[in-house]
Design a protein around this nucleic acid. Structure first.
Length: 806
RNA sequence: GCCGGUGUGGCGGAAUUGGCAGACGCCCGGGACUUAAAAUCCCGUGAGGUUCAUCCCUCGUACCGGUUCGAUUCCGGUCACCGGCACCA
């Protein structure tokens, strides 16, 4: 019988659907297992073959867990707000709503062709008012807890999208989405105080099973550093200049200070400053140039330092009362620490470069380097010198002692800083969740009453972005005008919308209870399903979505919405599938794109799934090769032919060990995302079966169980043909017997001086001495040992014997 | 510059705690079947040497060095590529 994949795949997909095979409820008798994949943005282009890779992998995990008896939640939805759809709609004079709807239909059809064991009854759509009602609700809770605030600030402005971008969305000074130039603009923006959760976001990861590169990248992004803040007095003034430093131990080496051009003390001391116009000119120049100048230089550390000394002003080093000059320079950032630093040129590279340029004194306070050549920044080996009461101490001790000193004298204290900035949450665009805030002249920002949620996105005539940077919503005056919920006076609605990251920051919670009308999800259901047991997604989301959604989850835990704080127990990441030529598969190179619809039409979903997994190490990027599909297709054909070989029950003695080994291998490989080697193991077993030309029905069923997560349609069909009961997908996983994974006899290598000289077959588990004796009896070995002195004999059980001779 | 990762045949990639490098598959070559082709099946396939052939030998996991009976694996150094960060005091 020929392998008619089209018929088979259609038949079993319909069957799973009919029997609602993958729909789950909160079954208290079963252990739950929540598998999550990042829900797609339904773009107009549809999927390419790179997209399904993580879906198929996590489907395999889900299917295996289900067969192992877990109550598996494996849902899917649509992250459907966003710019590409909006831009497409503008260009084609359509409304984004129907465009989104069409795209979802298209994506869903493509996804369903893969035979994923998703619970489609839990589908969510971030643009559905019943969904974004709760996105808005969460925002209001953040607002009420002082974690959302509006602030006039310099923001990243994409000149093409005409929209504010979060820091995380700026890549190489260009827009992450369109690549256009990004400039700084002063605008009033909604911000979320993610920095309040910096420490929790860092600590929370510690006991989670996240792959290391996610952990390190997140930790770098959070950028925690421990140091001290220290006050420097300004001579003949009430003003103080507070600095942050990670090296308080080098305080005696501070020979000047530097403040950021935007530092407010410049205004406070205006009367004393003798060269105010010069300072002002430098500040204006710095503001203008800062952004694109940064991108011009590949190595910022080597960038020539510029600056101006503030004449008429001296600061006083609190530990030795030395008067030191104060400079303005753009190498100090207003947005980090206090916007001012004490400069220790002997032990900081940037200060060193600045001091060299301006001819400032360089004092050695940590011994160990040569400060006539370069700054000595090592903190491991240095010993303090020229530092009064710190002399002779190691750096760590000195840090402790000076910090105590500062705290005693009340001129400073220990301080922890983070590089993480607050999250710019406003977008001046149409296709996003309206921010449910009312602006009242008297009451300020007032939360919309929760009973009025969802605040619907109104229909607009034109939702093109405006050059002034105002949201298109601002043009709908009858929507904007409203009454203040607090005082009842005339007021206006906030017209900014939320970024795309909003809806995706909590979607995994909605899957737990998608039809709940009263709350985002019931506590009971959240407590049953959460946390997510295994979340796979792209590395590019590490400092964006992953961080944002953990922040929201930690917050929702804090306000009692759910019991678990950290939403994800395990995080893995997939490598990209590249074009055949090794370049990126992207819409900018249409010829590089392979459409899964075409592949499935020619080879079938099972072959497609097998190849997606067999193509290489799941965590690494790898080029697509349509020719490689053939190997998986041949494998599927050979699998289909097994039904003609299988006869009778019981076991085939020659295959028993091989079966137990394959069960073991596939079981462990799936848990470790080693899908490529699991499939290789299945291929090897099929080759062995054909070589042996015998197979029992019982064995066929074991094989089909192992294959089912990878190629579910063909497995179901053969299970049915072999007389199996019920759906294989809902059947039981198979166990192996460790003892039966071992052969009675093993071939071991015999080495002489580390080189393989012979191979012998011995009884498995033979002792070292017996193995060595057997090896020495081999004719070949005897010959090679002739006339030599044996120095050493090493045996590794069931692997090799090594005889060292002279 | 800093942090992380990777480097293995013509190609994608395998290789528990250091223990037979190249599993599995693609491509390619040879053969069988066929009127022929496709499909399928069988054999070969890291490089070099030697041999009629089997055998056998040498080299080989980016490069240089070290530890070890034994290194793709551990250590030190170098180079290349990929990803992240970017004057964060």
């Amino acid at each position: 019988m020929a392998y008619d994949f089209k018929l088979i795949e259609k038949k079993w997909q319909a069957k799973w659907n009919e029997e609602k095979a993958f729909q789950v409820t909160e079954d208290k008798n079963k252990q739950k297992y929540y598998v999550l994949i990042e829900f797609p943005y339904p773009s107009g282009q549809g999927l390419h073959v790179g997209h399904p890779r993580p879906y198929v992998a996590m489907d395999i995990v889900s299917r295996k867990k289900r067969m192992e008896g877990f109550n598996v939640l494996f849902p899917m939805g649509w992250d459907a707000f966003g710019l590409p759809t909006e831009n497409y709609a503008i260009k084609n004079k359509l409304h984004p709503k129907p465009v989104t709807k069409d795209n979802i239909v298209k994506f869903k059809r493509q996804l369903q062709a893969f035979g994923l064991s998703l619970d489609w009854s839990r589908e969510v759509d971030t643009t559905d008012p019943e969904y974004y009602k709760w996105t808005q609700w969460i925002f209001l809770q953040l607002f009420k807890n002082n974690l959302a605030y509006k602030k006039e600030m310099a923001v990243n402005w994409c000149t093409s999208c005409k929209c504010v971008l979060a820091n995380e969305e700026v890549v190489d000074n260009g827009c992450e989405r369109c690549g256009s130039e990004v400039v700084r603009r002063e605008k009033s923006q909604w911000m979320l105080k993610i920095t309040a959760y910096a420490q929790k976001l860092l600590d929370g990861m510690e006991n989670l099973d996240f792959i290391d590169r996610v952990k390190t990248q997140t930790a770098n992004w959070l950028g925690r550093s421990v140091g001290a803040e220290v006050d420097f007095a300004i001579k003949d003034s009430e003003n103080k200049l507070r600095v942050f430093t990670t090296r308080p131990d080098t305080l005696f080496g501070a020979t000047y200070m530097v403040i950021a051009p935007e530092h407010p003390i410049i205004n406070n001391l205006k009367d004393k400053i003798e060269n105010y116009s010069e300072i002002e000119a430098y500040r204006n120049a710095a503001l203008k140039k800062s952004d694109f100048e940064r991108s011009e230089l590949s190595n910022i550390a080597d960038k020539e330092k510029t600056g101006v000394e503030i004449s008429g002003i001296k600061a006083v080093n609190p530990v030795n009362n030395q008067e030191i000059p104060v400079f303005v320079s753009d190498y100090v950032l207003i947005s980090y620490g206090t916007g001012a630093i004490m400069a220790v040129p002997g032990h900081d590279e940037r200060d060193y470069a600045f001091a060299k340029t301006f001819g400032l004194p360089i004092i050695e306070v940590v011994k160990g380097g040569d400060i006539t050549e370069a700054a000595f920044t090592d903190t491991e080996t240095g010993i303090l010198v020229n530092s009064g009461f710190l002399d002779g101490l190691e750096v760590d001790e000195a840090k402790k002692k000076i910090t105590e000193f500062l705290e005693d004298k009340k001129i400073g204290e220990e301080k922890i800083n983070y590089k993480l900035r607050d999250w710019v949450f406003s977008r001046q665009r149409y296709w996003g969740e309206p921010i449910p805030i009312i602006i009242c002249d008297d009451c300020g920002f007032v939360a919309l009453d929760e009973s009025e949620l969802p605040l619907l996105l109104p229909d607009v005539e034109s939702y093109e972005p405006t050059d002034t940077g105002e949201s298109p919503l601002s043009k709908i005056t009858d929507w904007v005008k409203c009454k203040c919920p607090k005082c009842g006076k005339d007021a206006e609605r906030e017209t900014d919308t939320m970024p795309q990251w909003a809806g995706s920051s909590w979607y995994f919670l909605r899957y737990c209870d998608p039809d709940n009308k009263d709350f985002l999800a019931s506590k009971e259901k959240l407590d049953y399903w959460m946390p997510v047991d295994w979340y796979n997604g792209g590395m590019e989301h590490t400092t964006l979505h992953l961080l944002y959604s953990r922040f929201w989850a930690l917050f929702l835990h804090d306000i009692g919405v759910m019991s678990c704080p950290e939403p994800y127990l395990k995080r893995t990441s997939h490598g990209m599938i590249l074009a055949e030529d090794g370049g990126k598969m992207s819409k900018s190179r249409p010829e590089s794109i392979v459409n899964p619809d075409d592949v499935i039409a020619e080879y079938g979903a099972d072959t497609f799934r097998l190849y997606e997994m067999f193509i290489g190490d799941f965590e690494k990027s790898t080029p697509w090769a349509t020719s490689g599909m053939k190997g998986c297709r041949r494998f599927a054909e050979r699998v289909y032919g097994l039904i003609d070989i299988a006869k009778g029950g019981g076991v085939t003695p020659e295959l028993e060990v091989k079966f137990h080994r394959t069960i073991k291998k596939v079981t462990h490989d799936i848990d470790n995302l080693k899908m490529n080697t699991a499939i290789a193991g299945l291929m090897t077993l099929v080759n062995d079966i054909y070589d042996n030309n015998s197979l029992t029905i019982d064995e066929l069923k074991i094989f089909l169980t192992l294959l089912c997560p990878f190629a579910p349609h063909i497995s179901e069909e053969l299970w049915f043909l072999a007389g199996g009961k019920g759906l294989l997908s809902l059947g039981n996983w198979v166990d192996y017997d460790e003892n039966k994974t071992k052969e009675n006899a093993v071939e071991i290598a015999v080495q002489i001086n580390g080189r393989v000289r012979d191979k012998i077959i011995i009884e498995a588990g033979l002792s070292s001495q017996d193995a060595i004796n057997t090896a020495k009896n081999s004719e070949k070995v005897k010959e090679l040992l002739n006339g030599k002195t044996i120095v050493k004999e090493i045996a590794v059980q069931d692997k090799l014997v090594n005889i060292v001779v002279r």
